[in-house]
């Protein structure tokens, strides 16, 4: 019943991290799920905080960039919160129903996450002056076969774009945002690699938690601006 809860595993037919852990000890599965839920919930709170600030910036400046940023972080936080709150419910379902419910939840979470990254890219593409950058962003949607891999490619695009911005501005807050997205990227790569080693799945969550800490540090610095 617990085995398919490794929702971020790319190949749903292969052995998932939780299935492997479950074979070793049920207690380890509970600890694994507990840590999974807590980290995801913490990340969702930070995403909502960033969304709140982006909304304030949108109301203040009226720029479309911040509207897309707000919607993106709102979607990201919602996906994380949905996942964190659905795990305790899904583990209580009977096995045949659980498999279907977990697959459906997995598609929702991955879909909304991909949507959030697409919104971030749309925000930057909207501000881009060159056609090349827009074409590259559009190409991303055409060449990538799976949602998880699409997330990785979109995050690579965001990290590359923010790196170029940082090279020209050398702003510490921007460096924190760049590290935040870089950690989200590392998290997705680790989720993909977790099919080979279950520990990488939790490491992926840890990477995302560190990424959220970076966003939180940026928000604290912004809130203290006078």
């Amino acid at each position: 019943m617990l085995n398919s809860l490794g929702m971020k595993s790319l190949d749903h037919s292969s052995t998932t991290p939780i299935e492997e852990l479950g074979a070793q000890s049920p207690m380890r599965v509970l600890l694994f799920l507990g840590a999974d839920v807590l980290m995801e919930a913490a990340c969702s709170i930070v995403s909502f905080l960033v969304a709140y600030y982006a909304f304030r910036a949108y109301r203040f400046l009226g720029e479309g960039f911040f509207k897309l940023l707000y919607l993106g972080f709102l979607a990201l936080g919602s996906a994380m919160l949905f996942r964190a709150s659905s795990i305790p419910v899904l583990v209580k379902l009977a096995p045949p129903l659980a498999v279907q419910a977990i697959k459906a939840a997995s598609w929702i979470v991955e879909g909304v996450r991909a949507l959030s990254y697409a919104l971030f890219i749309a925000a930057y593409v909207k501000r881009a002056e060159g056609r090349g950058e827009r074409a590259l962003a559009a190409l991303l949607l055409l060449i990538v076969p799976t949602i998880e891999l699409l997330c990785v490619f979109m995050l690579i695009y965001l990290v590359a774009h923010l790196s170029m911005l940082l090279a020209s501005s050398r702003n510490l807050d921007l460096a924190l945002v760049l590290l935040g997205f870089a950690c989200l990227l590392a998290g997705h790569v680790l989720f993909l690699a977790s099919a080979a080693a279950p520990a990488l799945y939790l490491a992926g969550h840890l990477a995302q938690l560190v990424g959220s800490a970076m966003f939180l540090a940026m928000l604290v610095r912004v809130a203290r601006t006078r």
Binding site: Y53, A54, R56, A57, F60, L61, E63, F65, F66, L69, R127, H161, L162, L165, L166, S169, N171, D173, L174, L176, V177, M218, R221, V222, A223, T225, R226
Partner: peptide, 18 residues
């Protein structure tokens, strides 16, 4: 002015000049 400065710092964190 305080709100503007906070929003400006937030904007810069995402590489956007106000």
């Amino acid at each position: 002015l305080a709100e503007f400065r906070r929003i400006e710092a937030f904007s810069k964190a995402f590489g956007v000049e106000v």
